[in-house]
Amino acid sequence: MRKLLKSIKAWRKKRRSEAVKSAFGEKLEVLAGPFAGMKYHFESHGSSIVPKLVGVYEEPIAGWVAEIPQKQYDRIVDVGAAEGYYTVGFAYKNMARVVHGFDISEEARKMLERLAALNNVRDKVTVNGLCDAGKLQELAGKGALVFCDAEGAELELLNPAVVPSLLQTDMIVETHDFLKPGITNTLIERFRLTHRIEVMSDSERQWAKYSWPAMFNDRMKRGWSNEGRPKGMLWLRMLAIHSA
């Protein structure tokens, strides 16, 4: 049974790659958004590749991402890096001296390494497994941005009682209240005295302003743009007051 499931997974992956090739061509690159021009491969981890290629992926926080270079960070810590859309994108756009990508999936880490090599930024990127409190304490602090999409683990990880260097760290966090109710309010309470906090809610993407392959009709564009996210997703941008 395990071999059969593995074969089915491989077959589906091949079919997806063939469909993406057919729509976007043999050489992929991000067409718009904060990482426009970044080369891409025919694989993704945990999310669809199409919104990333079009540039509509996580559109509500695209403005925050575009403002990152203004802060001149020494390092960015990407927790939940998946195949590297943000980790490699940050390095590709020179948004920090070094970008540390963390993901617990070995498959995702291999994809990340391939994407970094494809964009010639392997020397600016470190690829890591689990990001625990000790590692985060070491990497966070002044000059750092923590970019976190940890599927609910942000509740335990982003705790200044355990990781005190976070009190001097800028953060952009996708919160997952649908997995663990109350995460957003808990994080706001933890950092309200030390950070300027903004909340961004998910919204329908402005899909019509992007360039799409000819095979996508309006219904397909709208469907792919919404990324299959649960309703009510939120992001937090928390800027340490020390950097004001």
Rank of each mutant, 00 (worst) to 15 (best):
D177G: 10
A150S: 09
G84C: 06
R114A: 15
I183N: 00
K124G: 01
A108P: 01
D103C: 13
C148E: 04
E154P: 03
Y92I: 10
A116P: 02
F178R: 12
R109D: 03
E156K: 14
L130C: 10
E113Q: 12
T175H: 07
S201I: 08
L157Y: 06
L179R: 14
V88N: 00
I104T: 14
S105K: 01
E113Y: 06
L187V: 00
K124E: 10
T186G: 00
L179Q: 13
V125L: 03
G89F: 02
K93H: 07
T175F: 08
A116Q: 01
G129T: 08
R114S: 13
V88S: 01
N159D: 15
V127L: 04
S105F: 05
M111Q: 09
K124W: 01
N185Y: 11
H176E: 03
F147G: 05
K142A: 14
S165T: 15
T169C: 13
Y86K: 02
N128F: 09
R109T: 07
V146A: 13
Y92F: 15
K93G: 04
N185G: 14
K180T: 15
E151N: 14
E198A: 07
L187F: 08
E138M: 13
E138V: 05
M95E: 05
G141T: 14
M200E: 15
S165Q: 12
V127H: 03
T126E: 12
E198G: 01
G101K: 04
A96L: 04
L187T: 00
T126C: 08
M171T: 05
S105R: 03
F178A: 10
A150D: 06
P181Q: 09
S201Q: 11
D177F: 13
V121M: 01
A116I: 04
G84N: 05
A140N: 06
R109E: 01
I183Y: 02
A144Q: 01
G84D: 06
Y85C: 05
E204A: 13
M171K: 02
E174Q: 15
Y92E: 11
I188K: 08
Y86N: 04
D202F: 04
A96C: 05
K180E: 11
R192Q: 14
Y92S: 09
G101W: 05
N120G: 08
A96P: 02
V99H: 01
T184K: 08
L139G: 02
P181M: 11
E189K: 10
R109K: 12
G152C: 12
H176M: 11
Q168M: 13
F102A: 12
R205K: 12
I172F: 05
N159R: 10
S201M: 11
G134A: 15
A133M: 11
M171A: 09
R196F: 10
L166Y: 04
V98F: 13
V121C: 10
E189H: 11
L155V: 06
L157C: 09
Q137P: 04
A161Y: 08
R97G: 15
P181R: 03
R97S: 14
D202C: 06
G143M: 14
I183P: 00
E198P: 00
G101L: 07
L118K: 07
D149Y: 03
C131L: 09
V99P: 00
L112R: 01
V99Q: 01
L166A: 07
P164E: 06
L136P: 03
E198Y: 04
N185V: 09
R192H: 14
L193P: 08
A116K: 00
E198S: 10
E151P: 09
T194V: 02
S201L: 12
C131E: 06
A150V: 07
